Computed example of a mutant assay.
Amino acid sequence: MTSEIGTFRLSLPGPMLRRGFWLYVWKAVTAEGQELLYVGRTGDNSSPNASPPYIRMGQHLGSMKNQNALRRNLVNQGVEPETCNTFELVAHGPLHPEVVKPKDFDHSDQAVRLQLMEEHLPLRNIVGAMEKRLERDLRAARYSVMNVVKWKHDVDDETWAPVRSAFANDFPRLKELG
């Protein structure tokens, strides 16, 4: 791999700093021009946290095995991330706000943590169902999606329709699914 020196810019809209439950799609364009998609969400499975999408940006391309799913999926496709032409993150949300924690929240306080998880889980389950639906709809619309979202919950069509419509602005073949 050759090392190239360059000047690059990344623009980040301020609203992407808001914590909460977001859906997102990474679009990686390879050196050959192939578009590869990765579908994700914010809203932890193991804690009552729902980070903003900008935090997931660095994690996805980093070296931590339990956080770098985009990097792993690209490598599994035979693509070294550093050789990609571009990465674009399309994020929609927050669909729900993060569960409000007490100012003095201590992660080791199991009683408070359990109470917060009771509030967090229903929101996480809805957004997880939307993540699954987005991955399947993008695939049905003939986009090249690298990951398969496994989630036991489903989302009803009425709740899903405005979210799919929002993503159809960037992925227009979703409009064909009606």
Rank of each mutant, 00 (worst) to 15 (best):
Y143A: 07
L138E: 03
W160H: 05
E118A: 14
L138K: 00
D109C: 06
H120R: 02
R113I: 03
E131N: 07
P122D: 04
L116S: 09
K150E: 12
V155R: 03
R124S: 10
F105N: 07
W151G: 00
M130Y: 04
L121P: 00
R139D: 10
P162G: 03
K150H: 13
R139K: 15
A140I: 03
M117V: 08
N125T: 05
A161Y: 04
D156K: 09
L114E: 15
V163L: 05
T159I: 06
R113M: 14
V155F: 07
L138G: 00
R139H: 11
T159G: 01
V112D: 08
D109S: 07
L138I: 06
M130F: 06
E119Q: 15
Q110L: 12
R113Y: 14
R136M: 12
K152L: 07
E135H: 10
E119D: 09
D106N: 15
M130I: 04
R124N: 06
D109G: 07
A140R: 13
H107P: 15
M130K: 08
K132W: 02
R133P: 00
H153F: 13
H153Q: 14
L138V: 05
E158S: 07
A129T: 01
D104V: 08
P122A: 03
H107C: 05
D156E: 13
K150L: 11
M130A: 12
R164W: 00
A141P: 06
W151R: 10
M130C: 14
Q110V: 13
P162M: 02
D156L: 02
